[in-house]
Design a protein around this nucleic acid. Structure first.
Length: 424
RNA sequence: GGAGAGGUGGCUGAGUGGUUGAAAGCGGCGGUCUCGAAAACCGUUAUACAGGUAACUGUAUCGGGAGUUCGAAUCUCCCCCUCUCCGCCA
């Protein structure tokens, strides 16, 4: 959620930044005028409440002295009614403001490349070495079937399309990847958490997934719970409605969860195998930090995620998203993409975002600074999230890149101690 | 799912209609004392919103919402959560 004060004080800036995202900005003026109405009513009702409070105290004293207060009470009845109707009006205005505000995305950082579509994203760096194959490469579905390690058909039988079933060495490889990633992140200073995968509405709101993306999520209506689309949601909510002391930051968490996405509206796109699924596995990185450090921390997080791909000896690239391609809550974002030798395209395996105070404001995640100096200040934390990494698409790249001419798959060296075997 | 108990400031805990934003204690912070520390003592210690350049002022907040009242932490209704016992169960 954006700061209403920013819209109030500098609407031109807000509009200018939103336009860079290709966002419709007409609601900004609407919010501004609703906010003006709200504040003028607020001033009015607060002064009436002051009168009421003073009168009530007086009535109390008079009654104690057994002096008649009928006249005073009658007068206050009128004022009380007036207060009630003003309060109702204010409440309605606040609801209108919020309904609009909840759909306004974060403002892009000045450092974001400006663009109109994903084509304007900027490739920062290509890493690792591209392999040369002197045979026709198999795609991950063929490789999965060949070794009976991924069974898409039975996954479909159990649940539906997009719910893959891993078997045998496939399941072990998946588990090995997760363990390898978590262990690596722990070394880099992240605390591991294992969170709930169903969360309540408040948690979704704090992560800025609801109301805007409510219908992209699997929901359990009876209990008003949501299946998480990413571990970002429960991990951020660890500190919802809390205030950090500034010395506690940066606070870094990593966590593995299953992730669930309806991907409504994307049918027909990348329906093959692992490229777009409804349930996948992901290790997530979260960093709560001081506002002035968030962009520096973001570079660190990028390195932490890259390290996984480096150690797996993957061929990948770092892409910086342009203003038009940023996620709803993000001010700046890097994607990591691994090369698919069979699909002949780059696959997104990680997205590292600086959401600055956008989620912290909604989730009331704050920092207390200057403790003991007498000049205490409370401000919103900055929150970064990054995948480190998502395994299903990584699995695609990994299987393809490590295949041999007879269809075997060589396990990368760093994973061998986790799998217990070196070839599939 | 059934029965009961309870939700008050960072924590413990008083308060059942009228200076109660809220006693007291603990903790935190600042100070006095000390070579330093502890102890003791003194002071201070919530958040949000609105107005104001500011000092500051006002309003709101005792799980959430609605209601009664001139006035609600306190009374009424609905909801949520936690705990205990029973049932079920990985």
């Amino acid at each position: 959620m954006l700061d209403i004060k920013l819209i109030r004080e500098n609407p031109e800036l807000v509009i200018e930044k939103l336009k860079l995202r290709g966002e419709n900005t007409e609601n900004i003026d609407k919010i501004k005028s609703l906010d003006e109405q709200r504040r003028s009513l607020l001033t009015k009702v607060e002064s009436l409440k002051k009168i009421r409070n003073e009168a009530s105290a007086e009535i109390g004293k008079l009654k104690a002295k057994r002096i008649d207060t009928t006249e005073k009470v009658e007068e206050m009845k009128k004022i009380s009614d007036e207060i009630k109707s003003l309060d109702d009006e204010i409440k309605k205005l606040e609801e209108q403001i919020q309904d609009l505000l909840y759909y306004i995305p974060a403002l892009p950082s000045d450092s974001c490349p400006i663009g109109n579509s994903p084509e304007d994203n900027v490739v920062i760096k290509v890493c690792g070495e591209e392999k040369q194959f002197d045979f026709k490469v198999k795609d991950h579905i063929e490789l999965g079937e060949l070794h009976d390690i991924i069974d898409f058909e039975r996954g479909t039988k159990i649940t539906g399309r997009g719910f893959p079933l891993y078997k045998g060495k496939g399941a072990i490889l998946e588990r090995a990847l997760i363990n390898f990633m978590l262990d690596t992140h722990i070394i880099n200073g992240y605390e591991e958490v294992l969170t709930p995968v169903l969360v309540n509405r408040k948690s979704m709101e704090a992560a800025e997934k609801v109301p805007k993306f409510e219908y992209d999520m699997y929901r359990i209506e009876e209990d008003d719970l949501f299946a998480i689309p990413t571990a970002e949601v429960p991990i951020i909510n660890i500190h919802r409605d809390e205030i950090f002391n500034e010395e506690e930051l940066p606070k870094k968490y990593c966590g593995f969860t299953n992730c669930f996405r309806r991907e409504a509206g994307s049918y027909g796109k990348e329906t093959k195998g692992f490229l777009r699924v409804h349930q996948f596995n992901k290790v997530e990185l979260i960093n709560f930090c001081l506002p002035e450090n968030s962009y520096r921390e973001m570079e660190n997080m990028l390195l932490n995620a890259c390290r996984i791909l480096d150690e797996l000896k993957m061929y990948y690239r770092i892409v910086e998203l342009c203003t038009a391609d940023l996620g709803f809550a993000a001010s700046k974002c890097y994607d990591l993409e691994v090369w698919s030798y069979a699909e002949k395209k780059w696959l997104e395996v990680s997205s590292i975002s600086n959401c600055t105070d956008f989620q912290a404001r909604r989730g009331m995640i704050r920092i207390k600074r200057g403790g003991g100096t007498g000049k205490q200040k409370i401000e919103f934390a900055h929150i970064l999230n990054g995948s480190g990494l998502a395994t299903s698409r990584l699995m695609v790249g990994l299987l393809e890149a490590n295949q041999t001419s007879n269809g075997n798959i060589i396990i990368p060296e760093v994973l061998q101690k986790y799998t217990g075997f070196d070839v599939i």
